[in-house]
């Protein structure tokens, strides 16, 4: 029994690891040069502030050491053919492999903040995205964990975090909520405040959606240590001669306009379907929803199945999930695949 796992992020790794415990052989096909996905870049993950890097390090080690798992980096699937009950997949490096089932764990892509030009990302150096803020907060990152302004290298004391950039916006075609931005932005705000007590962090939000276990408590803790939350969507960022960023919004709870000057503005970017989603949908012949994420056969009863037998979905490919939900998804898809393979071999 052999399974192809497309995507070597946390979902893909955890799926391969779980399947290997059932003595099922898995091949992880990863597009980039190193497995581990996006989480290996995070120093701390919410809500318990544990190290994302260590988490992934253990997963990578077990994948590399397991005799059941083969890792193919720098490669993608270019074509898939179904023969009776198995699949023949052609890879970009010319390899051809035969597998019984395919699991797609291709994840998501971060929204390109330049598509909302009113915030001036890539025009004003002191407007950064949350991914860049994450690397600033990483002690092993480019600034050794210090929050320095890109324009002049001074320590940033006044920081604004703008929520819902690239989410809940019909104009740019993303009407959905990205689900995790409220929580990761709150985590970042706490990190800034805990690293530097004098830092002033202001969050501009529309609704706070800290829905998971421990997420809301994290939000309350942030308010307790002095992170300010202002309800209002920022309409515009403009730059002042000294590089500071002026932000305008309406405080919708007071019904009054607010204007603030900040050293650094971080845009909490939402998530988009993975870049090659359209190509993958074509190769595997499966459907995507209007939001661009992949559709499962039935959201409630068969959350991992697709319209093609033997092709399964897991992780953020079916919509955004926090890290712990991705792990859950990985384990539940493994269960589904095991039952599928048992069925397949029984009838042979």
């Amino acid at each position: 029994m052999r399974v192809l796992v497309l995507g070597g992020g946390i979902t893909g790794l955890k799926t391969a690891f779980t399947l290997s415990e059932f003595d099922i052989e898995t091949i992880i096909v990863e597009k980039s040069s190193e497995i581990g996905g996006k989480v290996k870049r995070y120093d701390k993950i919410f809500p318990d502030f544990r190290s994302g890097k260590n988490l992934v390090k253990n997963l990578i080690a077990s994948a590399r050491n397991s005799p059941n798992i083969t890792v193919l980096e720098n490669s993608t699937v270019t074509n898939v053919a179904k023969n009776n009950r198995s699949y023949t997949a052609s890879l970009s490096d010319g390899k051809i492999i035969e597998v019984d089932a395919i699991i797609l764990t291709c994840g998501f892509e971060v929204f390109d903040a330049t598509r909302q030009p009113e915030y001036g990302y890539s025009v004003y150096p002191n407007v950064i995205t949350s991914m860049e803020l994450e690397s600033f907060l990483n002690p092993e990152g480019p600034t050794k964990g210090k929050l320095l302004r890109p324009s002049d290298g001074k320590v940033a004391k006044r920081i604004a975090i703008i929520f819902c950039v690239g989410s809940r916006n019909m104009k740019i075609g993303n009407p959905y909520c990205s689900r995790i931005c409220c929580s990761y932005s709150t985590k970042q705000a706490i990190e800034i405040k805990e690293n530097d007590e004098e830092a002033m962090v202001t969050c501009f939000y529309m609704d706070i959606r800290t829905y998971g276990r421990g997420f809301e408590e994290m939000y309350q803790y942030a308010q307790e240590i002095g992170v300010k939350y202002i309800r209002g969507r920022v309409s515009e960022c403009s730059v002042l001669p000294d590089g500071n960023i002026q932000v305008r919004a309406e405080n919708t709870l007071l019904g009054k306009p607010v204007q603030g000057v900040f050293d650094l503005v971080s845009l909490s970017v939402g998530m988009m379907p993975c870049v090659d989603a359209e190509e993958l949908a074509g190769i595997f012949g499966i459907e995507r929803g209007k939001d661009g994420f992949f559709l499962s056969k039935d959201d409630d009863l068969f959350p991992h199945d697709t319209s093609k037998e033997g092709v399964f979905l897991a992780g953020s490919i079916t919509g955004l999930k926090p890290i712990r939900d991705c792990f859950l998804d990985a384990m539940s898809v493994s269960g589904r695949v095991v039952s599928y393979l048992t069925d397949l071999y029984k009838n042979r």
Partner: peptide, 26 residues
């Protein structure tokens, strides 16, 4: 409507010194 307040921020009426007598969001 999300009640996000971007419309009020953009409305020229709020730029008057009378301080936002008119708010599209409200």
């Amino acid at each position: 409507c999300l009640q996000c307040g971007m419309c009020t921020e953009a409305c020229p009426n709020t730029m008057l010194n009378t301080n936002s007598r008119f708010s599209p969001r409200k």
